[in-house]
């Protein structure tokens, strides 16, 4: 085997080992914490706004409901980018590391249906089921997380399953199990999943990271 063939073989082995060992956490614990708190707060504000309305007054406008949650999504994405960048700087990596690119490639196809559903929701002149929109958001967010399962930590995979199953449950829940005259179930579903699930995830990730004591050994 000549030098070139040997070098190529070495590079191939290195690449395959690195791909196999890559673990990428698409959602940092601080983002989950802030995003979770924002989602719970938003749910509370929407509920509080509805309660303060006069009896018989219409609930929150469908479009406004979606706009509020999309604004929260934009804020959380900006926060996640900030934290991922901070982490990359601290570890001497670039923002769009190979792990980040791998995650984006895996997630992108799962965003098509929720994006199309959201556009359809806004373009449709007739009132549309909020339950359907929220179920699609929740279920496909779960699918996005599960799409990274091959290189994601176990906690993120469990979070993905929780979202996916909750999204499926939501499709059947409201109309089959009880009346929702004020149309608040979708709002509560957003708070329970994007709020509480993320808070539980953040607590679990932090709890598993904190050692009781740490000693760093200098080179001899």
């Amino acid at each position: 085997m000549n030098d070139r063939a040997r070098a190529e073989e070495h590079l191939r082995v290195i690449r395959s080992l690195m791909e196999r060992a890559t673990i990428y956490r698409a959602i940092s614990a601080p983002t989950a914490l802030i995003g979770g708190l924002l989602a719970v707060a938003t749910t509370f504000v929407i509920w509080w706004f509805d309660r303060s309305q006069a009896p018989g007054a219409p609930g929150l406008d469908n479009r406004l409901f979606a706009e509020i949650w999309l604004a929260i999504l934009a804020v959380v994405l900006a926060i996640n980018t900030f934290f991922v960048r901070q982490e990359a700087l601290r570890d001497g990596r670039v923002l769009l590391s190979s792990g980040a690119r791998l995650a984006l490639r895996a997630i992108a196809p799962c965003l098509l249906i929720p994006a199309a559903t959201t556009i359809w929701y806004f373009r449709n002149a007739e009132p549309i089921d909020q339950e359907i929109l929220v179920a699609v958001w929740i279920a496909f967010y779960g699918l996005c997380l599960l799409a990274t399962a091959l290189f994601a930590p176990r906690s993120l995979v469990l979070l993905g399953w929780a979202f996916l199953l909750s999204g499926l449950l939501l499709i059947f829940w409201p109309k089959s199990f009880g009346a929702d005259p004020r149309g608040l179930y979708p709002n509560f579903a957003m708070g329970a999943t994007f709020g509480l699930y993320h808070l539980v995830y953040a607590v679990c990730v932090w709890a598993s990271r904190q050692p009781d004591a740490r000693e760093i050994l200098a080179p001899e």
Binding site: P211, A213, R214, E215, I216, L217, P219, E220
Partner: peptide, 25 residues
């Protein structure tokens, strides 16, 4: 690798002692 300064060693106490390794600059 540690002697050469390529690898940093961190000893942590979690449920049990754990030694972890990372590349240095």
């Amino acid at each position: 690798l540690h002697k050469l300064g390529f690898v940093a060693v961190t000893k942590e106490m979690r449920d049990r002692p754990q030694t972890s390794y990372a590349l240095t600059t």
